[in-house]
Simulated assay, not measured.
Amino acid sequence: MKLQTIVCLLAISGLGACMKTTPVQSTTTSSTPASSKVTTATTTTTTAAASSSFAYGSDVSWLTQMESSGYKFYNNSGVQQDLFTILAGKGINAIRLRLWVNPSGGWCNLNDVVAKAKRAKAAGMNIMIDFHYSDTWADPGHQTVPAAWSSLSFTSLMNTVYNYTQSCLQTLSSNGITPTWVQVGNETNNGMLWPDGQASTNMKQYAWLINCGYNATKAVFPSCKVVVHLANGYDNTTFRWLFDGIKANSGNWDVVGMSMYPTAANWSTLNSECLANMQDMVSRYGKQVIICEAGMPVNDPTDCENFLKDLIAKTKSVSGGLGVFYWEPECYNNWQGYGSGAFGSNGEPTAAMNAF
C-alpha cells in the first residue's frame, strides 16, 4: 500500500486547499511526489493517561561499534552479559537506534541498525528508529544533507526522503522488525536537510519534508507513531514556534519528542519547565509527548538518578506521556569523548540506571 494524497484547489478570493490521504495501489511516479502532497494535520485531543506500556528506554546506537572495539558489559554482580540483558534487568523495555544515510565507517547505517534491532526484538523490547536524514550527526546546529542528495532539487529531495524512509522501513519489516515509533529528523529545532528544510527561512518546505517521512512511515507501518523531535524540552517558546509553523503548513506528526540534558544544579528547575511544556504540547496540539533523549554527567550518578526518577514521574503524569529514553547509557571510559553515559569505568551500570 502506498499513501497518495488527493489535493483539491479551491479559488475563493485566493487559493485554498483541501487535502486528504487515501491509500491506493500504485507503482507509478507522478511529476509531483506523493510524499509532498501533504495531509492535513489534525488535532484530536489526547485523553488517555500514560499507558501501562510506558517506555523505559535507552538509545544504544554505539553498541556494535563499542563491541567491535573490545568493550564488554557487566551486571552489578560483575558478571559479563549481553547489554540488552543487563538493560532489561534494570527495567529497560524500549530501545532507540539512530539511522544515518551513508556514514563514514558504516556504523549506524541500515545494516547496522537492522542487526541491533534484531537483538532488541529478541530481548522483548519496543523499538524507536531515529532518522537523522544525514550521513552524520544532526542536531540544532547541524542538519547536513547527505552527500548523495546534495544536488537534488526540492521536489527530488522530497521524493528521495519518502523513498528512502519507505525503503529502510520495508527492510526492517522484512527482517521481522516493527518499530513502535519513528522519528523524522533529529533535534530539528530549526528544521532539517538544510538549506531546503531550514524552518527559519522556509517553514513550509520543512513541514512538507516531515510529511514525506510521515507518509512513508504510515505506508509501511500504519500504526507506528511518528515523532518530531526537538532539543531543550524546557524551551516552550521554541516548541510553540516550530509546531505552530508545522501545523500552519499542514504538517503531520503524532508525538512531540524532547531532549533533556540538565546539570546537577538545574535539573529540578528544568524538569518543572519541561513538565509545563509537555502539558502545553498536549493541550495546544492534541498530540502525545515523549522524552527521546536524557542524560547527565556519569560522575554524578546520584543526582542523575534523582533527575531521571523525577522526569519519569512528570512524564507519566502528563495525559499522553509515552516514555523516557536515556541517551547511550552503555558508554564508559569516555567512549568517543562522551561523558554522560550511565555505566562506570568497570563496565557496570551506575546508580543512575536504578531510576528505571
Rank of each mutant, 00 (worst) to 15 (best):
K225D: 00
V255A: 07
L209A: 04
V220Y: 01
N215P: 01
F239S: 10
D254G: 09
G213Y: 11
S223I: 03
L242M: 06
I246R: 00
N236S: 14
F221Y: 14
Y214I: 09
P222G: 03
A216G: 03
G245F: 02
M258C: 10
P222F: 05
I246P: 00
I246M: 10
N215M: 10
S200T: 15
A207N: 12
A231I: 04
K218A: 01
K247M: 13
F243W: 12
R240G: 08
G213W: 12
W253A: 03
T238L: 09
G213C: 06
T201K: 09
Y234C: 10
D196C: 00
M258A: 14
H229Y: 01
N215E: 09
W241I: 11
F243N: 02
V227I: 15
S250T: 11
V255Q: 07
C212T: 10
L242C: 08
V256R: 02
V255M: 03
D196H: 14
G257Y: 03
N252I: 14
A207K: 06
D244E: 03
C212A: 15
V227G: 06
F221S: 04
G197H: 10
G257R: 00
W241Q: 14
V220C: 06
T217N: 00
D244K: 03
T238W: 06
A199W: 04
S200D: 13
V227C: 08
A219F: 04
V227L: 12
Y234D: 12
D244G: 12
D235N: 13
F239Q: 14
G245P: 02
W253Q: 01
N249K: 08
N211M: 05
M203G: 05
A219Y: 02
A207S: 13
M203R: 07
L230F: 13
K247H: 14
W208L: 13
G245N: 06
K247C: 09
N232A: 13
T238C: 01
V226P: 07
L209T: 09
S200M: 08
A207G: 06
N252Q: 15
M258D: 00
V226I: 09
C212Q: 05
Y214M: 05
F243H: 12
M203S: 02
D196S: 14
D244L: 11
G251V: 14
K218M: 07
N236V: 14
V256W: 10
N211W: 09
G197T: 03
N252V: 12
M203H: 07
V226S: 06
W208N: 11
D196Y: 14
V228M: 09
T201M: 00
T238F: 07
K204G: 07
V227F: 04
Q205L: 02
I246G: 00
N249Y: 07
A216Y: 08
N252Y: 11
C224A: 10
W208T: 15
T238H: 03
K247R: 15
A199M: 04
G197C: 11
T201C: 03
G257F: 05
N232M: 09
F243V: 09
G245D: 10
K204Q: 15
K247E: 11
K204L: 12
D254T: 01
D244Q: 12
W208H: 12
V255F: 09
F243G: 05
G251Y: 10
Q205N: 15
K247N: 14
A216M: 04
L242P: 06
G257K: 01
